[in-house]
Design a protein around this nucleic acid. Structure first.
Lengths: 205, 205
DNA sequence: GGGCATTTTAACCAAATGGTTAACAAAGAT
DNA sequence: ATCTTTGTTAACCATTTGGTTAAAATGCCC
């Protein structure tokens, strides 16, 4: 009768299984039966804990989005010199995504599937991302003459692109250039410092 | 038979419809009925021209892959000075993808779904991509002292990332920064020259 | 051990979906 | 015109799939 002894084991097992299946197959490709099998339980039990596929998906998607977006937002809000900020972001973001390499593709894909759902749920209550401050910081550095005349938006896009894209394209890069898991990890490890150097070399006045 | 007043033959109509639906919904999310509806014909007719969903998908995927990959391969093989090659690639690739902005996400997603299918079908007969020559060209420039000491692989990844990622992340960027279609097109138009400048500024000795 | 809520399962159901069939319509050939 | 081939359709079929139900197990408190 006591509400719940928080027998999390089952619920967590379902969440772990759902994450694996959803990230692998996407919302459309995922099968409730697969999630149940992966969790080693009966399918009805999945519906017992999470009403339906959409509700379960929502939990997984939000978990993924809330892991990926806040760190980007940090770039926008943090109080840090520009160069250090760039270094910090690349280093930390690659470390973060390395733990779940396919999360970005999953999230971008589902945003593409239903952009408005994304808009509605992700920035609910939470502060919507405000790149303005970061863009202003770049403008300030330009004014100080410490960096060249570059469009702030492009600098931002370049940094995000170089950091995130390799994960999105991971299977292609691997098949294409015969990279194995080990090599991919090594290359991404290098990029933690290569990307900031590349950027700073480009914009440094 | 109501020969469509459109100049398009039935088979072409199906292909156009299939492309739209597959690129929008992916292999798993696409419905044969949707494709038929989009083409304005009976569902059985789709099976008449293309045996089944997988065969139809194969045609669409190969069409997409064969539009996206050869231009990348050109970078690897073309005889052109490094800087010009970079400028040419960004300019041409953005123009190319601008016509079908969601093609990269579609292709990357399906490669992720089944990397081996990709390996088997895409480079069938066609020359597999050989980045070696491009990487060697970079090494040569390094030796000549015209560019700084950068890892060729990272330079390649940076160029591809900055060029392709904005399309993959298009819905997110638009929702996130309140960009409309018009603004997105304008930004990508700028990137045709911004990216090469950014790269060359970074690596120029 | 007996009530009682919670957890778990097997069996089931209705809708969706890929695919088939058989009949019908249109062109083309004779 | 008639026959044949090709194109097209409505109706149908088998399987998959998300979701439900009712019963069984499990724990919990007295």
């Amino acid at each position: 009768m006591p509400k719940k002894q928080k027998d999390k084991t089952t619920e967590e097992q379902i969440l772990a299984a759902a994450k694996k299946v959803f990230v692998r197959d996407g919302m459309a490709g995922a099968r409730m039966q697969d999630i149940a099998d992966e969790a080693g339980i009966n399918k009805a039990l999945v519906h017992y804990y999470f009403k339906n596929k959409e509700k379960l998906f929502e939990v997984i998607f939000m978990e993924a989005a809330n892991r990926l977006f806040p760190r980007i937002n940090e770039v926008f809000t943090a109080e840090l010199p520009l160069f250090e900020k760039i270094e910090k972001f690349c280093e930390e973001y690659i470390s973060l995504v390395m733990e779940n390499p396919y999360l970005p593709l999953f999230v971008l894909n589902e945003i593409h599937r239903d952009p408005n759902y994304f808009l509605g749920k992700v920035w609910k209550g939470k502060s919507t991302p405000k790149p303005e401050k970061f863009l202003a910081q770049i403008e300030a550095e330009k004014a100080k003459g410490t960096i060249k005349d570059i469009h702030p938006l492009h600098l931002l896009m370049n940094m995000l692109s170089m950091t995130i894209f390799p994960f999105v394209a991971k299977p292609m890069l691997q098949k294409n250039m015969g990279m194995n898991e080990q090599q991919f990890r090594m290359v991404m490890e290098q990029r933690k410092t290569e990307i900031p150097r590349f950027i700073i070399d480009s914009i440094k006045a």
